[in-house]
Design a protein around this nucleic acid. Structure first.
Length: 123
DNA sequence: TAGGTGACGGACC
DNA sequence: CGGTCCGCCACCT
């Protein structure tokens, strides 16, 4: 069953991920920080895993801090789907999932951080 | 209940 | 670079 706690966490993740600009990337760790869950990058991955695809949430813009799409058989193809979506946004992704994270990493300025804060408080 | 597994990340070698 | 270890914590046997 879905606990209210998990549901809230998922909503927070979706709210901030929705703020990532087209053609930009961020990491699971960044998302965790933004929702006030420092160190909980792993749970962010679980939250995105729960999204029903296709989704209006730009989940494909979240990659790991090593600069690669997390490839895993358990994702049943969503990893390859992520690769296609990112390529469609102009981000080159190698077959093994490697991508130029440095060049496309989104580092929100204070205004954008504040904006995300507002969205979170509105939940 | 206990133990194994991950869409993680950082430290180390 | 790559590989290993460990802390983390929700999930799933």
């Amino acid at each position: 069953m879905t606990s209210p706690q998990r549901s809230s966490f998922d909503q927070r993740v979706s709210a901030v991920v929705a703020c990532i600009p087209h053609g930009r990337l961020c990491t699971y760790g960044q998302v965790a920080d933004w929702i006030g869950a420092y160190g909980c990058a792993r749970q962010v991955g679980w939250a995105l895993r729960r999204l029903s695809l296709p989704s209006r949430i730009p989940w494909q813009r979240v990659v790991n801090a090593q600069g690669r799409i997390s490839m895993s058989l358990s994702r049943e193809g969503s990893d390859w789907m992520q690769r296609e979506l990112l390529i469609a946004e102009g981000i080159p992704v190698a077959l093994d999932g490697r991508l130029p994270l440095k060049r496309f990493l989104w580092v929100p300025d204070e205004g954008q951080i504040a904006r995300m804060g507002q969205l979170l408080r509105a939940l």
